[in-house]
Design a protein around this nucleic acid. Sequence first.
DNA 1: GTCAATACTTGGAATAATTCTAATTTGCGC
DNA 2: GCGCAAATTAGAATTATTCCAAGTATTGAC
Lengths: 141, 141
Amino acid sequence: MKMAEKKHLNSSLLERLATNGFRFTPQREHVYSVLLEKRDHPTAEEVFIRAKRRMPDISMATVYNCLDALVKCRLVRQVALERGAARFCPNMQEHSHFYCDSCEQVFDVNLPPEPVIGLPRGFKAERYDIAIHGRCPECKT
Amino acid sequence: MKMAEKKHLNSSLLERLATNGFRFTPQREHVYSVLLEKRDHPTAEEVFIRAKRRMPDISMATVYNCLDALVKCRLVRQVALERGAARFCPNMQEHSHFYCDSCEQVFDVNLPPEPVIGLPRGFKAERYDIAIHGRCPECKT
DNA sequence: GTCAATACTTGGAATAATTCTAATTTGCGC
DNA sequence: GCGCAAATTAGAATTATTCCAAGTATTGAC
């Protein structure tokens, strides 16, 4: 990553954190960069392992705290795909997730332009979580 | 519930279990009836508490086993809505779930006739899990 | 720039949800 | 009815997440 890009990333991260009442910390910057680096929907545990590589003293509690802050700032999405650990995804474009029940990989899938579901009167939707389960091309029998 | 209805329920449950390689047990019958009785998307813990009322010796491990069997027989759906416990729902019609982030209640929402999302070549969808987060009519500010 | 208030980080303990284990019991095909 | 595999049980173990208390760092006011 070029210096200019890094600077821009940090200033927009700082701004986003600040407007949501959070402080800018090296840990939050680092956790966010880890998520951007490899967009494979890691679990909190996996984020922790990757974050430790360049920041060996970071703790699991901090990783959870950082992920929480990033989710609340709407910089990261949290998805529940299988029984078990939550997964995190820095792609904030409208999209849904395809979960391969065989190899357990997760793929981003674009939504059609009209994903709107008719809700009964009085319900106010804030966010849609669409998970599609099935077989990916590699695992088709 | 009338006797005739109960008989029918049991024979169809038996059949469904059998064709999926499961045995018919009083515990599985009871757990299924508990889910049908109050369709409020209980957690496994809640199912356990309700099941104990008329079957005091049932254990938590059995409740998990029964729910697993029912899910594998496609008699029950398992949904992950929030961080935390999974929830169970015996409504097998195509539908999605509305989760109120304020009061934490879950509502079934009918899907439009065209819920199909264009998947990239080679992906085979087996099931869609659509969770909508927002505010229910009671909690609208 | 200094200071104070308070949010954040840390390691470890605690909790919650689920799965595993080993012994016993039960359903079901023969 | 018999025998075997599957299911049940209580409790231990594991996994994922949250809580806690002490020290540290960030931010806004001066």
